[in-house]
Amino acid sequence: MENALQIQAKKKVLIVAMTGSTLLYLAGPTDVFSQANKYLEEAGIKNGYEVLIVSPASNKKITTEAGISIDCQYSILDFNDEIDTLIIAGNDFGELSQKALQEFYNWLSKRNKENTRRIASICGGAFALAKAGMLDGRKATTHWYLAERMKKAYPNIKVNANPFYTNSDDGHIFTSAGVTTGIDLSIALVEHDFGKDIAIKVARKLVFYLNRPGLQSQFGSLVQEYETGHIAQKAQLWLTEHLHERLDVNQVADYMNMSPRNFTRVFTKQTGVSPAKFIEKLRVEKARKFLENTEIPIERIAEQCGLGGLVSMRRIFLRHLMTTPSDYRRTFQSAKYPGMDHIMETA
């Protein structure tokens, strides 16, 4: 196997830096493949990866979200031969930029298994693949904040906002979630190409996971923001002050000056969730804040947030966040506790 790897040409990895990209979209994957090259050379394998950051348009200058400009050596439009790995890093949703990138989308739509071994996206880059028609009927992910937008814009895509990255059934199309997940995906690609030993060395060097625990759902809010005057926004104002109490739909409907039946019907229609499910999500969100910012015992948090006891809270956390309260605290707890213990005691 080693001799076969030695005689292969370097795998050409092109990372398309979309305008407005976060620097980590580019730096993360580039560092993964560059570190992989070092360990491959140590193993006597000279032909690892050739990594190039390219612009999506003929203008080879890219302005990142941080305001840093990058002068690319190449435009993606310069490449019409075979590519090993194509990664679309981020996306600029501005209408003018989309218009200016029409030539890029035409180029992208012609990429297939015959000329590109695998195609991937990071964060909003999935929208570029969707626009080019590459994700129709496929499972895909993107940043949790953009998931609903993708579902509405492209109903034929099987959007799942939970995983850090996805792989199509045929192994041709990969999509990753927000920012740092480009690193997760790139390490997985290295493992696929050169095995676990090389991949785990890269992960250790970058102080990263070979397989990061958790899911995207742990990062996003369970409750979306509603405009002032929306029925959910009005109900939330009252509910947040009463989450420690035993609540039912009659109490909320009474506050809203509506009959329980009418309130339930209107609320469910306008939000897509029942009042009971909405209250449960609010309780989890409140509990998350205390887990993140205090040392208060989990049992006490469960009581104050209306989540019952430890067993009930654990079950609800697993349902909504796919992790336990104790694991969530270990992952997201702040290094400092800005006086929230006092807030808890007076709640």
Rank of each mutant, 00 (worst) to 15 (best):
A126Y: 10
L23H: 01
Y165D: 06
V223F: 11
T142K: 09
R149P: 00
K281D: 03
D31F: 05
T63W: 02
A27W: 03
R204W: 08
E191G: 04
Q251M: 10
D254A: 01
Y49R: 10
T294S: 15
Q73D: 14
N262C: 04
Q8F: 08
K277W: 01
E42P: 03
V179Q: 07
P155S: 06
A147Y: 09
G125W: 11
G28C: 05
G272R: 03
S97A: 05
P325Q: 04
L40H: 11
F93E: 10
F127G: 06
K201F: 11
E285K: 03
K10H: 07
L101D: 15
A161H: 12
Q98F: 12
T85K: 12
F194K: 09
F104E: 05
K99M: 07
C123H: 10
A100D: 14
A132M: 12
A17K: 03
R118K: 15
A66S: 13
E2C: 01
G124A: 13
G67M: 04
D81T: 09
L26D: 07
Q251Y: 12
P163S: 05
V202A: 05
F332I: 00
A161S: 14
R283N: 03
R329D: 02
S312M: 08
H342C: 02
K196V: 00
I183A: 04
G137F: 11
D327W: 11
E148R: 06
L5G: 01
F194H: 15
M344S: 14
R315K: 13
V32C: 07
C72I: 01
I7P: 07
D169N: 12
R118Q: 13
R204T: 02
L96V: 08
D31A: 06
Y39M: 08
I173K: 13
E2P: 04
E148G: 06
H143V: 00
Y39F: 15
L108P: 14
K152P: 05
D184R: 04
E303A: 04
I296N: 08
E82V: 01
I298D: 12
V284A: 03
G171M: 02
L321W: 09
H342N: 06
Q8T: 04
A57D: 14
G195W: 13
A126N: 05
K151Y: 02
F33R: 03
L108E: 10
M150Y: 14
Y337V: 00
G272K: 03
T30S: 14
F263L: 00
W107C: 12
T22D: 15
K158A: 07
T116N: 11
T30F: 13
E65Q: 10
F317W: 10
L291W: 11
L310M: 14
T141D: 12
N115L: 03
R283L: 01
S55Q: 06
L86Q: 11
I45C: 06
I157V: 15
I187R: 12
N156Y: 03
S221A: 12
S109K: 06
F127R: 09
D71V: 02
K234E: 08
K139N: 09
K196F: 07
K10Q: 13
Y165G: 08
E42W: 11
I316P: 00
N37P: 14
A161P: 15
T346Y: 04
A347C: 11
M256Q: 01
D197K: 13
Y105N: 02
